[in-house]
Design a protein around this nucleic acid. Sequence first.
DNA 1: CCGGAATAGTCAGTGCCCTGACTAAATGAC
DNA 2: GTCATTTAGTCAGGGCACTGACTATTCCGG
Lengths: 147, 147
Amino acid sequence: MAAVDLTTHPGHLARRLQQAHTLLWNAMVSEEITSPQYAVMNAVTAEPGLDQRTVGERVSLDRSTVAEVVGRLIRRELLDKVRDPQDGRRYLLRLTEEGARTHRRLTVRAARMNQVLLAPLSVPEQDLFVDLIRRVSEAAEELRRPV
Amino acid sequence: MAAVDLTTHPGHLARRLQQAHTLLWNAMVSEEITSPQYAVMNAVTAEPGLDQRTVGERVSLDRSTVAEVVGRLIRRELLDKVRDPQDGRRYLLRLTEEGARTHRRLTVRAARMNQVLLAPLSVPEQDLFVDLIRRVSEAAEELRRPV
DNA sequence: CCGGAATAGTCAGTGCCCTGACTAAATGAC
DNA sequence: GTCATTTAGTCAGGGCACTGACTATTCCGG
């Protein structure tokens, strides 16, 4: 015995929240473009010409994962990658025409999906929820810094 | 332009919360046993002799993922798997001696880790936080049912 | 100017997570 | 009792996410 109730463990709940989100994303936003792919497109929309490392910083992904996601977006011709003439280590990222169109389309759908996802909470609870998650994950990110 | 602030998207925040949790888990609970592996061990502790499908139900994992996680726990000799003599389709799962010991050890550490993870929130906020995540993910799980 | 440190990206390896197709076993309707 | 349906588990394939080792380029101190 001595088993624990996992529904009191925030880590376990975070994983289930993620699952719920992915489920809803596939149903209401896109079956082809995933949420992390959208996040990368969104970062490049905000700051065209970003390099991969900085994109990773913006969306909270490590270099390897960014490289994979970027690779997939390029394969689908939603993203372009060119060497920085100023710094031969960097690649500069930019959305293609189709990438920009896709981003706009998904932005609308993602907003609708967020409403459905948070529908079980009242509006003030929704704001509180977002605030609490943000505070917890930001605090934990600090612990990473001094590595 | 027309980029969106991802810190208002609960899905994105959920992913970051997961990252934060994994980071803390590795630092404070175990580098070998992952949180999903612990969840499976915990389910088997609560109900020894569970089959894989039911374990998946208890910890919110699909059959394929359970099979992988179970496989890794068996390789580490923390778990045993035997055919159900009553039903030749099922495998019954049970912790080994070492598995039970490991589960007890990690339970203590996980409790400490949860405190650290939630430390940025006041105690009433912590309860609220857990309640809100639970409500959102449970509601989304309902949407899966009628598949 | 040159050589060592730092930086951007890649690659291999591990683990989580899902879907869809498949196999083997059990069930149940006739 | 037999055959179609359901069920438990496996497997292939795709995507996310990390670490640690490696390459190429840039930067910086002397």
